[in-house]
Amino acid sequence: MLVLSRKVGERLLIGDDIVVTILDSRGDGVRIGIDAPRSLKVHRAEVIEAVTAANKEALAAPAVSEDQVLDLLPPAPRPATPPQD
């Protein structure tokens, strides 16, 4: 792991097309800006970890049949019948 000290306004270049800029430093937090190509995914690690944990939990849940899901839905409204003469 590369460890650097940077001041507000200073930048870090990763490869040819990623720029990390230090925007602000307050107490125990640092705000950074990341300029990267749209094709590159940039995510916070804690979000990825939470999604992965939720996916694992969903896989461990008992399977639910289509009928069980349909039973949870409210009944569909009946179409109005036209008045008869």
Rank of each mutant, 00 (worst) to 15 (best):
T21Y: 03
A58W: 13
A45I: 15
I22H: 08
A60N: 12
K7T: 05
A50T: 09
D16F: 00
S39R: 15
A53F: 10
R38M: 02
A50I: 00
I22V: 15
R31D: 10
A63G: 13
S25P: 01
L23H: 02
I18Y: 13
M1D: 14
I22K: 05
N55Y: 06
V64K: 04
D28Q: 04
S65K: 05
L13Q: 12
A60T: 11
L2T: 15
D16R: 00
E57V: 00
D85L: 02
V3A: 12
A54G: 10
D17L: 05
L59R: 14
L73H: 05
V30C: 15
V8P: 00
L4Q: 07
L73V: 09
R38D: 05
L70A: 08
A50S: 10
E46K: 12
Q68D: 14
R31I: 00
T52S: 12
R78I: 11
P62I: 00
S5M: 07
P75W: 02
A36N: 07
E46T: 13
R11H: 05
G29Y: 09
A63R: 12
G27L: 14
S39F: 05
D17S: 14
A58Q: 14
V20Q: 08
V69T: 04
M1A: 13
D17G: 12
N55F: 07
A50F: 02
L13M: 12
L40K: 07
P74C: 09
D24P: 02
R26K: 13
A54I: 11
V64N: 02
V51Y: 07
K56V: 01
T52I: 07
T81K: 14
D28S: 11
V47Q: 11
A45S: 08
D35A: 15
K41D: 03
A61F: 03
K41M: 08
G9N: 08
I22A: 14
R38I: 01
I18L: 14
Q68C: 01
N55W: 06
A36C: 13
A58I: 11
I22Y: 05
I32D: 03
I48P: 00
D16S: 04
P75V: 03
I22R: 07
L40V: 09
I34E: 06
D24L: 04
E10I: 06
G9C: 04
V69C: 03
I32M: 10
T81W: 06
G9W: 10
E46L: 08
R6Q: 09
L12A: 08
A36M: 09
D67L: 03
P83D: 03
D28N: 11
P37V: 10
P77N: 09
D17E: 15
P83N: 08
T81V: 11
L59M: 14
P37C: 11
K7H: 04
L40C: 00
D71T: 09
R11C: 06
G33C: 11
S5Y: 08
M1I: 08
Q84T: 01
A54C: 07
P82A: 10
D16Y: 00
I32F: 06
D35F: 11
S65F: 03
N55S: 13
D35C: 10
K41E: 04
R6G: 04
V8L: 01
G27P: 01
G33K: 15
I48M: 11
A53W: 04
D24R: 12
P75K: 13
R44A: 09
A63W: 06
P83V: 01
R78D: 14
E49F: 03
